[in-house]
């Protein structure tokens, strides 16, 4: 049986006890799938998991708390489930996690760059997967691209591709891409120095439209309906179109996610203006992982920055 068929059987077997199973189905164009809410067997026709399964289904879980729900999970999605559960934002027993060995997902911005001079990604008429490659039908003929060249950055540093906390796992577990995330990208980015980074963020944030897709795509951002960035009463953040107000929100999101962010990258993927907001979160995750040895979504217990120890074992506060 193919992985697709095995997944469909696993969903079918679980459906009678669940209000729905969240997976992926056909999207509005060949390069993009859409999250799929499978409520009955008929919906399975439209299901498929694989290179286009970019959306993180864990996003929808907190709002469905109180009912039994299934999710088909990539490795990174499963980390979001794990983190939500350990923070009791969802009840783990209410969620049925169906895992499969994820081989990585597409980054449409990279496809756009690869197609420069050929066409816009929105002009691709069909995508065919062919092993490690994809073939795209463009107005100027077929273009073949290696999946690894157009996969999301996170997949190039994936330690947990196999939904570690799956209740049911189909297929054969694959080897991780790397054994440790060295945060080399962030180290190099930070090495640019304060002045250059300030200029970088001023430029990037200047095109932010304050749509909060970054926030609403984040599975761990659960207070989005009461966000201090939008509330007028109290009125914390100005409603200008200026970089300080926009960056202020990004810093708030990053700080609220520090030690909780699993690096799923949905914030950055969701940003319609292509602002690399994941960098801010990864900069903090790097420090939390180093200081507290806490890997969000894998570790259990209260995230280190939501609590404190009188003596932190890794922080030397006194000389004696």
């Amino acid at each position: 049986m193919s992985i697709q068929d095995e997944l469909k059987s696993a969903i079918k077997a679980a459906l009678p006890d669940l209000s729905c199973v969240i997976g992926w189905g056909a999207g509005p164009e060949p390069l993009r799938a859409a999250p799929l809410f499978i409520r009955g067997e008929a919906d399975l026709q439209n299901f498929s998991a694989g290179f286009l399964s970019v959306n993180n289904p864990a996003l929808y879980l907190p709002a469905l708390k109180g009912s039994k729900v299934g999710v088909v999970a990539k490795g990174c999605d499963a980390r979001s489930v794990g983190q939500l559960a350990t923070e009791t934002l969802i009840i783990r027993e209410e969620v049925h996690v169906i895992g499969y060995p994820c081989e990585g997902v597409i980054d449409v911005d990279k496809v756009a760059a690869a197609l420069a001079g050929v066409c816009e990604p929105g002009e691709v008429g069909a995508l065919r997967e062919d092993g490690d490659n994809v073939a795209l039908d463009t107005p100027k003929g077929e273009v073949r691209l290696a999946k690894k060249d157009i996969a999301a950055d996170k997949c190039g540093r994936c330690i947990f591709p196999n939904a570690e906390n799956a209740d049911v796992f189909v297929g054969i577990r694959r080897a991780p891409t790397v054994v440790e995330d060295a945060y080399a990208d962030i180290a190099a980015f930070e090495a640019r120095g304060t002045e250059e980074l300030k200029a970088f963020w001023e430029k990037e944030m200047s095109r932010c439209i304050r749509c909060y897709a970054c926030r609403n795509a984040c599975p761990l951002c659960v207070c989005r309906d009461h966000c201090i960035a939008a509330s007028r009463e109290p009125h914390w953040i100005g409603q200008t179109d200026d970089v300080p107000d926009k960056l202020f929100f990004q810093v708030i999101h990053a700080v609220h996610l520090s030690g909780r962010c699993t690096g799923c990258g949905e914030c950055e993927r969701a940003c319609p203006l292509g602002i690399p907001v994941l960098k801010l979160k990864r900069a903090l995750s790097r420090r939390v992982e180093n200081l507290f040895g806490y890997k969000a979504g894998i570790a259990t217990g209260t995230p280190p920055l939501l609590t404190f120890n009188i003596e932190e074992s890794t922080i030397k506060e006194r000389d004696w």
Binding site: L36, L59, Y60, R210, C211, A213, A217, H235, A270
Partner: peptide, 22 residues
């Protein structure tokens, strides 16, 4: 079901004209 109710659609839309006063 799959909508994440952000403002990307309205803010990119050439015809959405709603505003707030602060």
């Amino acid at each position: 079901a799959h909508c994440l109710y952000c403002g990307a659609c309205t803010y990119l839309c050439p015809t959405c004209y709603c505003f707030n006063i602060t």
